[in-house]
Design a protein around this nucleic acid. Structure first.
Lengths: 333, 333
DNA sequence: ATAAAAAATGAAAGCGCTTACAATCGAATT
DNA sequence: AATTCGATTGTAAGCGCTTTCATTTTTTAT
C-alpha cells in the first residue's frame, strides 16, 4: 500500500503538504499541488480513510438503524438519505434492529464504536428514555418516524393524525356517511393517531363515531380481510372503508370481492402509506401518501446541518401527508 | 473519550493486556480479565474500532454497491446479506451506483478508500473488464446478479434461462400451445436469457418459435400493456402470455382486462421475479421466484469464507429459480 | 528597496489501537 | 530441587494520517 509518505518523497515535499492537497487543496500553491498529484497518480496512491478518521476524529460516516432491510419502506427512506449524503461525500453504515430492544441497543453501540459522526435511527423497541439519554450524552442522532417530546428537535415524523383525517375527510366529501374503519395496532402510536384523525374528521362532519364500525387489525393484509368479514358478520352497514395502511386495504378489497361487493361501485376503499404496490392493484388504490423518501432526506439534512455545519437545507420536523386519488373511491351509488 | 491506556492503568496491567481481553479474551488469565473488565465498566470504556482497524488492517466492514435503494429488490438482497453478516459481527457500508459507470467506479473507489475488507457489487454499467481487473489487483469482491466468465468464482447469479424455461414449460404442461412472450430489454443478459429459456421450452415441446408472438419490452409495467396491445393489433392469437418480469405481467393484465379478456379464463399470464406485489394482484400472479434474499446470503457466505476464513457455509454460484403457482394461469378454455 | 503581513511549507507530536518479541511466571517433569 | 516449557504479561514499534506551531517564502504596502 502506498502511503502519503512515499508520495511526499517522490514529490519532494513534506507529508503535511500531501495531506493538504487531499483535504484543503486550495491552501497549497498550484505548482506544488500539481507536483503532488502527479506523484499520487504515478504511485497509484489511495487515500486511507481509516487513518484519516483516527487522526481527525471524524469518519464522515452516518450510522443507520432500521428494523429490517426487506420491504420497500426502508429502502425508500434510506434512498432519500443517501441521495442527500452522497453529494456531501458521506457514507452510511447500515444495521438492523429487528424491533428488538437488545438488538437495537447492540447495533447502536456497534455504530458508536465505529465512531459514526451521527446516527439516524428508526427504532421501535428501545424506550424513549434510552434515546433521550443518548442525546444527553452528546450522541448526535436523529430519530425518524417517531416523536419523542423531550427531544423533539431530534425527531422527524409524519403527521399521522392529519393523514387519518385526510382519508376520512375525502370519503365524507364525496358523500359517504357510513364509514367503516380498519385500524392498525392501537398500541402503536401511528395506529392510534390515524384512528384519531379518522374520528376528528367524523366529528367535524357532525357524525358520531361508532365503535361497531371499527375493527382493530395489525397492519397485515390478512387482518384487513378479517376486518371486513367480521364487520359484515356483525351486521355493520357501510358504503366506505378507511384502512390504517395499504396492506390492510388490499386485504379488505379481497374480502369485499368475496362478498360480492364491487370496489368502488358498492364500497369505496382508502388505504394509507401509498406503498409501491398500491398503484398495481386494480383498481388502483386511493390512499394517503407517506413521504418516506422525504423523511429520509430530512434526516440527512439534519445531520448535514447539525453535525457538519453545512448551510441550512430546507427542513421540516413534522411532515404532511397528502391524498392520492386513484380508483377505489367514488361517491356512494 | 476513555482509552485503552486509562483502562490499563486503572486495572494495573499493560495496554496490551487490555487489548487482549477485547480481542482474545481466552489468552488472558481469568482473574486479570475480570480486573480489566471491571475497569472498563467503571470508566465507561468504548472500544475504538477505527483505531483498531488502522492497527490491524482489518475493518470488518463489507462495502455494498447497489444501483438504488428504493424498491423491494435490493432491500431483500441486502437483508439476506445482513442476516448472515450480523452473526459474524461484520457491518455493511452501503453505496448506490445509479447504473452509471462513473458513479459506480467512484463508489467502489470510496469503499476501497475506507478499507472495506470486501465488496459486494451489483453493478450494471461498469464493464466486465473493469471488474476482472479489480480482482486481478487483489480486491476481494463478489459480483451478484451478473455472470462474468473470467471471474466466475466471484459471481453469484440466477439461472435465468432455466427460469424462462420453467415459466413456458408450465404453460405448455397445462395445455397451452399458442403462447405470447413479452420480453425484457434484449440488450440485457437477463432479458436475453429469459427469452432463451422460453424458446428452449417451446423447442422441447416441438413448437416452433414465432417472432410474431414476441414483443420486446423494457421491464416496466407500461411496456407490458403496450406489448399486449401491439400483439393483438397485429392480429396475433394466443391463449397465454409469458412475461419477462412481474411489472410487465401486471401491465399485460391491465391491457387484457381492457380488451375484455379475462385472466386466467381467456388468457393465462405468468410473470418472473415474484416481487412483493405479485401476491397482492388479483388474481395472484403466477410467476417464477427470484431467490434474491438467498443471493444476498450467498454473497455473505462467500465473503465470510474467502475473506475471513470461516468454515464453509452452504454455497451456490448459480441459483435455481422455481415456479410459484397462483391464480393467473389455468388450462385453455 | 524595505518592512510588515500573508501565504505556503515543514517538523513532529499525536490519534488509540495491535502485535511481534522479549520477559516473567508457574506448573509439570525428572 | 533443578529444569523445562507453555501460559501470561509487558515493551515498544508501528498503522497512515492530521494538525499545531514554527519557519520560510511570497506578496503587499510604504
Amino acid at each position: 500500500m502506498v502511503t502519503i509518505k512515499q508520495v511526499s518523497e517522490k514529490a519532494g515535499v513534506s507529508s503535511a503538504t500531501v495531506s493538504r492537497v487531499i483535504n484543503n487543496p486550495d491552501t497549497v500553491k498550484e505548482k506544488t499541488r500539481e507536483l503532488v498529484m502527479a506523484a499520487m497518480a504515478e504511485l497509484g496512491y489511495r487515500h486511507n480513510v481509516v487513518a484519516a478518521s483516527l487522526a481527525s476524529n471524524k469518519t464522515h460516516t452516518i450510522g443507520y438503524v432500521v428494523p429490517e432491510l426487506h420491504g420497500s419502506f426502508f429502502g425508500a427512506m434510506m434512498g432519500g438519505t443517501e441521495q442527500a449524503l452522497r453529494q456531501a461525500k458521506k457514507h452510511m453504515l447500515i444495521a438492523t434492529g429487528h424491533s428488538d430492544a437488545e438488538i437495537e441497543k447492540e447495533q447502536i453501540d456497534a455504530l458508536l464504536s465505529r465512531r459514526c459522526d451521527a446516527l439516524i435511527l428508526h427504532v421501535e423497541a428501545v424506550s424513549d428514555d434510552y434515546l433521550v439519554n443518548l442525546v444527553k450524552q452528546g450522541v448526535q442522532l436523529v430519530v425518524v418516524n417517531r416523536f419523542i417530546e423531550a427531544i423533539g428537535e431530534h425527531c422527524i415524523s409524519l403527521d399521522n393524525i392529519k393523514g387519518g383525517y385526510l382519508a376520512t375527510r375525502h370519503l365524507l366529501e364525496i358523500g359517504h356517511t357510513k364509514i367503516a374503519y380498519v385500524a392498525g395496532s392501537l398500541f402503536k402510536d401511528d395506529g392510534k393517531n390515524r384512528l384519531l384523525g379518522h374520528q376528528q374528521a367524523l366529528a367535524e362532519w357532525g357524525i358520531g363515531y361508532d365503535e361497531n364500525l371499527t375493527f382493530e387489525g395489525n397492519f397485515q393484509a390478512r387482518s384487513g380481510t378479517e376486518g371486513i368479514r367480521t364487520l359484515v358478520e356483525q351486521g355493520a352497514s357501510f358504503t366506505a372503508v378507511a384502512c390504517a395502511n395499504d396492506e390492510m386495504a388490499s386485504g379488505a378489497m379481497i374480502a369485499l370481492r368475496e362478498l360480492g361487493r364491487r370496489v368502488p361501485e358498492d364500497v369505496s376503499v382508502i388505504g394509507f402509506d401509498n406503498v409501491d404496490f398500491a398503484s398495481y392493484l386494480s383498481p388502483g388504490l386511493t390512499t394517503i401518501d407517506y413521504p418516506v423518501q422525504k423523511i429520509g432526506r430530512m434526516a440527512a439534512h439534519w445531520v448535514l446541518e447539525q453535525v457538519y455545519g453545512h448551510v441550512r437545507h430546507d427542513f421540516e420536523h413534522i411532515l404532511a401527508p397528502r391524498l392520492i386519488l386513484r380508483g377505489t373511491t367514488s361517491s356512494p351509488h
